[in-house]
Write a protein that binds this DNA or RNA. Structure first.
Lengths: 130, 130
DNA sequence: AAATATCTTCCACAAATGTAAAATAAATAA
DNA sequence: TTATTTATTTTACATTTGTGGAAGATATTT
């Protein structure tokens, strides 16, 4: 999958958060507060996203409607897998370890996470018999 | 923490893998096979890493010995925390969810991970009484 | 219809990144 | 001690990224 720059990713996130195809204005409204970009800046990122086939735009009068072409979970899954690969040779435990060792997740977090995983595992589709 | 580009990160990883202060040659030997860089390329990345205070270099005759100034776990923890923040608003469960939903971790992986977390939680320093 | 406001596209430019040739310095061999 | 090899530093350049002005459309108001 084609990779996105930090800004491009922020724009995609805003568009995903819109929940439906959106205009440049609506996307801007979903952007985090610290993105005080000029209109042309945002539009430029949207252009670049279009070239990377992450969005499609169709003209409606004089404005564009942007539609995401990649689902958020697809993108996030791919990026996280790459992250894991790059930093931990794909070993998720190593990542959890680094987070714990640097005080970013606590004992309680780990317990909760373990419960969450147990639950997810329990309802995993691999266990639907019929 | 200052951020690293992908190439710079690869160099740091190689240096960390050396396990001790290393020369450019030794670092090159620890690099993944697909990094077929010219010497000056690698040296340039080391220069940039020095400017970012990720390594220190001291001259030994005509060659340099490079020493990491940032521990791998420190860097990885910071980068992973940022990753989590950017893509999942800091919600680790959301990340696990995305990995599971895109077929990157299986039922078995989740179970194993849950066990791992239980163990880590059990021996968490927060539970050392005296 | 003319003036005005909106929107988008194009162009521009600085900074960061990937990459390496050319220049330089130090060590070694002849 | 002069050549030769080995390292490093300097310089350079293309591409990507962050950012926005200017120019060109389209719509709206007077």
């Amino acid at each position: 999958m084609e990779t996105l720059s930090h800004s491009e990713e922020q724009v995609m996130t805003a568009l995903w958060n819109c929940g439906k195809p959106a205009t440049r204005r609506e996307i801007a409204a979903c952007l985090p507060a610290d993105c005080t970009w000029a209109d042309s800046t945002l539009l430029n990122f949207l252009l670049r996203l279009e070239n990377k086939h992450f969005v499609r735009s169709e003209k409606q009068g004089n404005r564009n409607i942007y539609t995401p072409l990649v689902r958020q979970v697809t993108y996030c899954g791919a990026v996280s897998a790459a992250h894991l690969q790059r930093l931990y040779r794909g070993d998720l435990k190593a990542m959890l370890g680094a987070l714990a060792d640097t005080g970013r997740i606590s004992f309680t977090d780990m317990e909760r996470l373990a419960r969450y995983l147990d639950n997810r595992a329990a309802e995993s589709p691999e266990y639907d018999y019929d």
